[in-house]
Design a protein around this nucleic acid. Structure first.
Lengths: 340, 340
DNA sequence: TTGAAAGCGCTAACAA
DNA sequence: TTGTTAGCGCTTTCAA
């Protein structure tokens, strides 16, 4: 059916070895045959069958990426940059959307091994650590802890929690709420909430920690949730939550007649576009999305090529930064903030 | 290195044929050997090498997806649903982010052919039609026209343009602006703007069509652009633009002291979360993201399996629907709209 | 119920 | 400079 190296060889009147040599730039070839082979390849619209190449080389230049939700703005960005760095290094991306489903994650793990990908990046965690350690393939965890043998790349969430807390303290908040994601398993990013709460306590500020329900995914869910919070909590003057949740909190707060930042200060987390889309641009702790992608891929490729200089269980933390919007201080106009 | 079928056969004391039979549920096997083989596979943690299987079968169960921008909310959603449907059908997703770069798109096209994917979904279009027709593989175009032999799946954008226009007309707009994406090549989605402009003209309403610059990607760019529009255009009372652009327009309008929808009505397009995140929830024409994904994948799989019932050049149009938010009529409260 | 052997398309010794 | 051949890990005819 498809054109093979044999067809090219036949058409060019030489052996498959010669064609293979030309394909891979190996050995010496006379200009004449080189030309003949090239013409043959073009005329037949020949593409080498990577399957065969890979089978021989025991290498696919394929990397699997498992995320919990492709459509979440943060992961969507992460995927974009990961794919970009992989592409620059000659690798391709096999994308797996685990959807927080442990059956799916297991399937994906098996599938990736069967498909002989060169490595896996995992940004999901619904399985026992044993399941990950059994995988006999280079793995890097993105913002997860997957076991003592698997390196983790994440933002410096402790710094993030500290920055957020300080921003609210500096702006005189006395009764704050922080909203965490669903805490199924411990992840690096949960640390920001521990730190946040610690700093608040140390400063004698009342801090309540609430957890998003495990089935709250969409912005609509966040609005419902935000509505509940305001119904059940009075006189809150500070909020710390992921950007999209913070955006929902802001929207509901304003619809209830609260003044932001006058009555209520808000600090988001992530630095995704949601922080810009809200009525008042969010003050937010921005994660270094691009750097995270770069570091994750580079770490993985080093393991693949065997030149890894890290201990296996390293945790690489990348610095975050606070971007001051309009939800904590009341000085700048909206446009100033956006143009900055 | 890796465990192969030979190792399993050796350990189980049988031939590779037998192991293969068990793997594929073919022929009849004695309960005794079946058990022995299963134990061997478990003890060795054996995974069949898909590369070898694929090479033999001439089939990879891999589908390539080329999008212009993974991180755009609309594509991110599309990717999520496409991956889901593929997964349900035993296929995996090779994700390619063309980034509106024709070099990259060419590379991807070649790569996908070399990697013997079973089919390709293309939601990007930076190349000549010839480049697509030369690809000797099942292709479906998502919201693009890629040539007479390639089926297109898209929303019914003409209906979308009509709905948007009618909504603004019904709410007494007299001077409207619509903002189109960058018009490098004609795509199905541009039709909404042609129709919109036609309907406006027929109703004697002043309608100006502006084009986003090709290098405007981020929300920040949209804000700058929106700012320019308001600087250079007076007394606009209606706007039609993609959700994220519409969101930026709303934000800038409000910061300039305009009342929405009092002074200015806005209709978005897409139905992504941006339409909910803005201060006033956008009235928007929602595309059937899930249906688009489903139809695209199903169409592709039908072509792959050879049971396609369509003409090759079919254009499947899926209906859109208007979701009325707070930017065209002033009745509902914000929360009502969000809870609806 | 089982096994030997050919072959999927390619690469790399080894030979000439 | 070129060709012959074995083999990557698997499936499947054919034979026993």
């Amino acid at each position: 059916m498809a054109v093979t190296i044999k067809d090219v060889a036949a058409k060019a009147g030489c052996s498959v070895t010669t064609v293979s040599r030309i394909l891979n730039n190996r050995g010496s070839i006379s200009e004449k045959t080189r030309k003949k082979v090239h013409t043959a390849m073009e005329e037949l619209n020949y593409f080498p069958n990577q399957l065969a190449v890979n089978l021989f080389r025991q290498r696919t230049y394929l990397v699997g990426l498992i995320v919990p939700d492709v459509s979440h703005a943060f992961y969507a960005l992460e995927i974009k940059y990961i794919e970009r760095v992989l592409h620059e290094n000659g690798y391709r991306l096999l994308l797996c959307n685990a959807e927080s489903d442990n059956m799916r994650e297991t399937e994906y793990l098996n599938m990736l091994q069967s498909n002989k990908v060169d490595g896996i990046i995992i940004a999901s965690h619904t399985l026992d650590l044993e399941a990950y350690s059994k995988v006999n393939l280079p793995i890097v965890a993105l913002d997860r802890f997957l076991g003592p043998d698997i390196p983790t790349v994440s933002s410096d969430h402790e710094q993030g929690g500290r920055l957020a807390a300080q921003e609210l303290i500096d702006n005189n908040c006395k009764k704050v709420i922080q909203i965490t994601g669903f805490c199924g398993v411990p992840t690096p990013s949960h640390k920001r909430h521990t730190v946040f709460s610690d700093v608040m306590k140390k400063n004698g500020i009342c801090c309540e920690t609430l957890e998003l329900p495990f089935n709250a995914f969409s912005f609509r869910d966040y609005i419902t949730y935000a509505d509940n919070i305001f119904r059940n909590h009075n006189h809150i003057d500070g909020i710390f939550a992921a950007d999209n949740v913070a955006c929902a909190m802001e929207k509901v707060a304003i619809s209830r007649g609260l003044n932001v930042p006058g009555d209520l200060k808000i600090v988001g987390y992530d630095g995704i576009e949601a922080s810009l889309m809200s009525y008042k641009t969010l003050t937010t702790v921005a994660q270094p999305v691009k750097q995270l992608a770069l570091t994750t891929v580079v770490t993985l490729l080093e393991i693949i090529s065997g030149e890894s200089v890290f201990d296996k269980g390293t945790h690489i933390r990348l610095p975050v930064r606070l971007i001051r919007g309009e939800t904590t201080v009341d000085t700048k106009s909206g446009n100033e903030v956006l143009q900055q």
